[in-house]
Design a protein around this nucleic acid. Structure first.
Lengths: 207, 207
DNA sequence: CGATACCAAGCAAGCGCTTGGTTTGTAAAC
DNA sequence: GTTTACAAACCAAGCGCTTGCTTGGTATCG
């Protein structure tokens, strides 16, 4: 019905049933869950909190999800799916390895600090709350995502623009970028997302 | 009595009652608490877990600490105190800004991945579990610590070795270094702490 | 009619913490 | 050198509350 402007990548994932429509009951719950999990942590968030956030009784949650953990897992799975797709698009739109890296950094920063930020923070900081089987499942999805980064970093290295080990650099960058959520406030206007991206590139001597 | 070799900086902090002796009852509890909090998270760790780890009943814990949160706070406070002292020593032992940065990076990596690693991880990833008053208290202590970094980064910038904003760089580094705890395994021997330090310096174009 | 979404009520288990009493270490008093 | 005194350290038991989740029933709608 109300076709508000929406990212075409997100739309195609919704059409393929890989990500829940944020307008649906399930999608709204997942969005609220991500926010609560980020703000209070998974353990401190009760099923009553989750239910209240979407205006239903706590018991009714279990019509949509079999357990509280399944909600956490769903938040993570859908977040990885969306971000992998966004990353792939960003990489293929850039021409040089340097621009590809810039695109990856910019996209990841946007994922962390933009609309999907809550879910992204949950993905990064709450995975200890997953049971072992769920953990391996998530890990498998992450590897596709990480492969994108490694390929670009290897390109940069082979053309002499990167002196350090791509593997190590990616991991240092993972920490550096995800940590921005604890301090970076885009709405304050001092530093834009593009500006922050350039700061990262500059620190790496790639400005 | 049994005077095993011990870091003199740690020893002086113990003598001043700023850090608990790891041999004392309190010190042993804090060490076990740090390990449990890192492995399972603060919320998932019960007072019964904590008590069992040092071989007492759960109720007996409250002879030493008024609440579970006080244990978390004590872990954090003592960790900051120790690491601030270690950092100050590391900085004053180096001659050039570049060496001072290297010393800071190396010391922080050691704090995170060495003996005090458990407590350090708790400090970084569990502060959401603190109540508001405890949070501001911890934050005040952190500022001394952060001041050390900023001064060295400003020195580097003023001599042209750093192009990016010191403030932003420190925050990127905080994330990059603390994240190593999730992937770096010094015991595996592929990459030493010195090697990792050099990788960070190389990434910043300061090798 | 039948499926879907929900509510009202509550259960069993686990939580942080309290309580009243016992052991243990220490050091002065006799 | 034994006794007395006393505080610190600890145990056993359990209280009051919250937790994730279940159950049985009801409203809504194609």
């Amino acid at each position: 019905m109300c076709n508000v402007k929406r990212n075409p990548i997100l739309q195609s994932l919704i059409d393929d049933n890989l990500v829940s429509d944020p307008a649906s009951a399930r999608g709204r719950l997942l969005k609220e869950a991500a926010r609560l999990f980020r703000d209070k942590g998974y353990e401190r968030t009760t099923v009553r909190d989750l239910a209240a956030a979407v205006g239903i009784q706590s018991g009714s949650l279990f019509h949509h999800f079999r357990s509280k953990e399944e909600i956490l897992k769903a938040v993570m799975v859908e977040t990885i799916r969306l971000n992998t797709a966004l990353m792939q698009a960003a990489v293929s739109a850039a021409d040089t390895p340097r621009d590809r890296l810039r695109a990856l950094i910019r996209t990841e920063l946007e994922s962390i600090n933009g609309r999907t930020g809550e879910a992204m923070a949950v993905l990064v900081y709450e995975w200890r709350s997953l049971s072992e089987p769920a953990r391996t499942e998530i890990l498998a999805l992450r590897e596709i995502y990480e492969g994108l980064w490694l390929e670009v970093l290897r390109q940069l290295r082979s053309q002499g623009d990167l002196a350090a080990d791509p593997f190590v650099v990616r991991r240092l960058l993972t920490g550096a970028l995800s940590w921005t959520i604890t301090w970076y406030r885009p709405e304050r206007g001092e530093l834009s997302l593009d500006g922050l991206t350039e700061q990262v590139m500059t620190m790496m001597g790639l400005s």
